[in-house]
Nucleic acid binder design. Structure first.
Lengths: 80, 80
DNA sequence: AGAAGTGTTGTTTTATATGACAATTTTCAG
DNA sequence: CTGAAAATTGTCATATAAAACAACACTTCT
């Protein structure tokens, strides 16, 4: 997997978890104390975020950080 | 846990995994294509690394990225 | 003591993430 | 379809991660 796809994968996971909690990018961004524009870029995999940013998001979503490194789509297929 | 301690935690984990593989900071840095000085700072928790850097290290150590987010010392105590 | 190996710290440069704000596009309910 | 909300994209300034190199500290040898 390319680095590019890897970042996209993490972004997708953030999005999945955010939507599951029924909040907007803006709401999540506010909880993380950064701009909604940044959140958009993160979910799109356009940003190589640091572990502290990852931590902020994990707290805001109330999930473990390792959740971001699971390919949830794949997992859901395997669990069928 | 403070952000500072969080970074130290990750750094310790990198160090544990590196030592388990019996390689030096320099050797690991070479495999990651960066300076041994950077590796020293990462293990000391003085660097807020990006997910792509984390990925480089995980490949160089041949471990899953999630390994870095486990507090191995705690786990080893709980597993007794 | 001297040499080699390992790890730490300092500095500079470059690249890029983030903050802030604006403008535009997309999505979706009414 | 229309309008409002949500998301995306763009730009600029600032902060900081990463790369590169040097210097230093420390240990362990002979």
């Amino acid at each position: 997997m390319t680095n590019q796809k890897f970042l996209v994968c993490i972004g997708q996971r953030v999005r999945e978890l955010r939507i599951k909690r029924k909040i907007t990018q803006n709401e999540l961004a506010i909880r993380c104390n950064f701009e909604k524009a940044s959140m958009s870029r993160i979910e799109a995999g356009k940003s190589n975020i640091t572990v502290l940013t990852l931590r902020k998001i994990s707290k805001a979503l109330d999930v473990e950080i390792v959740e971001f490194f699971r390919n949830h789509k794949l997992v859901s297929i395997l669990n069928k």
